[in-house]
Nucleic acid binder design. Structure first.
Lengths: 335, 335
DNA sequence: ATGAAAGCGCTAACAT
DNA sequence: ATGTTAGCGCTTTCAT
């Protein structure tokens, strides 16, 4: 080590290369206003010294962070992770940004997340998944000037990426109807404190399909529980224990559908003969168990959200068709 | 707005509160060396101005980042995400750190990740999952002085959190043996370019159990494919199509076990009567399909890794028992 | 094309 | 207890 122990700075490089720091900075930033000779010299010194510029210092000077934040209830359901996967993929195509995670599983954490991270000096842009910012939060975001893209949530102030949940519910129900089912049950989420609404929308879509088919809805067959496999299993057992059990179950998510499947197995009901089950999302596990479901473009939604955000950030262009792949029924072995 | 439009800085606060910036800084950092009166005044002004300190500037001045990075092949298998979940939980108990994600799915990305993020000015500490740093990378990390904790990977230079994969494989096989199986097949990963080794270790454990039970190993029944449900399914079909099919399959991961289950279903083989299946990991989906498996403490490993790292970072103390919950067989419906 | 110098907003030594 | 000031390592005018 000819140098002292601390990491070399732009100054060290400048000195060794016998140029000013500005020139080094220009080389670092690929500015054309540098003579080829100087550029070579600087590059060589950088290599020799093993210099790497400090992103912190750079960020401070430029007033940017080069990181985008993702706020989401990551572990509430696998579908959020699948969206995250899309985001990571999308971001990997534009290496300049880092990804910061803000997990929000409770109302408290949600408030914290916005207070702490909805700031220009924390992130250049924000991806918010399955969470709708409150009016105050939205106002803060806007006045702070932070580009935001919402995924699986909608708000008039921000671009968002949503599917037609009601339509999905309708499609699922129609699928069941076509198969001849008339006594159709619904298993969905209880209204969560974080205010997810898709489960309810899907139920409404189911209602619509029923109505259009001239089938009387049976509110007694519409059950709700906190999201999760286990609670859904309980619901399924309750359903199958009735004197007049349904012949089919529409679960508002694949996770809940898996619970319903477990219930069937516990009650020795054959699927789909005794009880048909259709889910929603098409997560990995759905394919694994042969669960019929409504496929929604999870990964794609993440990917596109990133594109949208990057565009807002860098004027980055692409064929932003904004339309996601449409929902569709994926018939498998449970219906 | 009495102020100009740009965000207030520590200077603005100092001026309004008629104190020096150092005092404001002290208040910000909860230093005791501030008179109660000054403290109040500063606090009031901060509230009035809506001042929030810039973490970038702070980080530059302090030479820290307050973020910990996680390098991992997040989407290769659900088990990594389950570990991440543990990390997020662990970190949420110590709000001062942010979480940065570095996804590594290919060798190229892996090299990039280390080059870009193994730096003091990017992260204060690193959590590396299912990836073993090369010698060069390890040396870099050490000389850079970055605290590192390895999860599901081992290296002499760093504390690590690993399970005894061979033991797990042995346990799984013994379980099968106890159930009377003698023709036991293995489905595992092909050696990945990223160098995961647990699959192979588990196979070795299986061999050991077989040997100890006096059962001849049948190399012909040990199949490998890239990680994933689909490839494992193919392998399962190949296995079941043999003139002398196995009576049981030990899959090196639950994901692959699910593939085996699909194969059974495709071949109309009853589980566990015609073919028993045992997996490894105990991911969510395993419980959902009633898959017998070897449970390893996934979430816990993430949690503990964070504890370990935080300790290295802050001298943060706790009952660091370092021992993870032991592996155990979780008998369900597939054996 | 290049360099000097003024920030970016904070922390921490040092002085008082 | 408090203020002054010199960094932290970079970007970016502004001269030249």
């Amino acid at each position: 080590m000819s140098q002292t122990d601390r990491a070399p700075t732009i100054r060290d490089v400048a000195r060794h290369a016998r140029v000013g720091v500005a020139t080094v900075s220009r080389v670092l930033n690929d500015s054309p206003r540098v003579s080829e000779e100087a550029r070579q010299r600087v590059r060589r010194v950088i290599a020799q010294l093993g210099y790497r510029r400090s992103s912190t210092a750079r960020n401070l000077a430029r007033g940017r962070t080069q990181t985008i934040g993702v706020v989401a209830p990551f572990f509430t359901t696998p579908s959020v992770l699948e969206r995250l996967r899309g985001m990571v993929e999308g971001l990997n195509r534009h290496v300049e940004y880092d990804l910061m995670l803000f997990d929000v599983e409770t109302v408290q954490q949600r408030a914290d997340a916005f207070r702490r991270f909805a700031r220009r000096d924390r992130v250049d842009g924000l991806l918010i998944v399955s969470l709708c910012p409150s009016e105050t939060e939205a106002t803060g975001l806007v006045s702070e000037g932070i580009p935001v893209v919402l995924v699986d949530a909608a708000h008039p102030d921000f671009p968002h990426m949503v599917i037609d949940d009601a339509l999905g519910g309708k499609m699922a129900t129609e699928h069941l109807l076509t198969r001849g089912h008339r006594r159709i049950a619904f298993i969905g989420d209880t209204t969560s404190p974080l205010g997810f609404t898709s489960s309810e929308q899907r139920r409404l879509g189911m209602r619509r399909a029923l109505r259009e088919a001239g089938v009387d809805p049976r509110p007694g067959l519409e059950l709700r529980a906190p999201h999760g496999r286990e609670p859904a299993r309980e619901l399924g057992i309750a359903l199958l224990s009735r004197p007049d059990p349904p012949t089919a179950i529409f679960a508002a998510s694949d996770v809940q559908a898996m619970g319903a499947l477990e219930a069937a197995s516990a009650m020795d009901a054959r699927v789909p003969e005794d009880i048909a089950v259709i889910g929603f999302d098409d997560i990995e596990a759905a394919a694994a168990v042969g669960l019929t479901t409504i496929r929604q473009p999870l990964r794609e939604s993440g990917l596109r959200a990133v594109d949208l955000l990057l565009q807002a950030l860098d004027g980055y262009e692409e064929r932003l068709s904004l339309k996601l792949e449409p929902l569709r029924v994926l018939p498998r072995r449970t219906t």
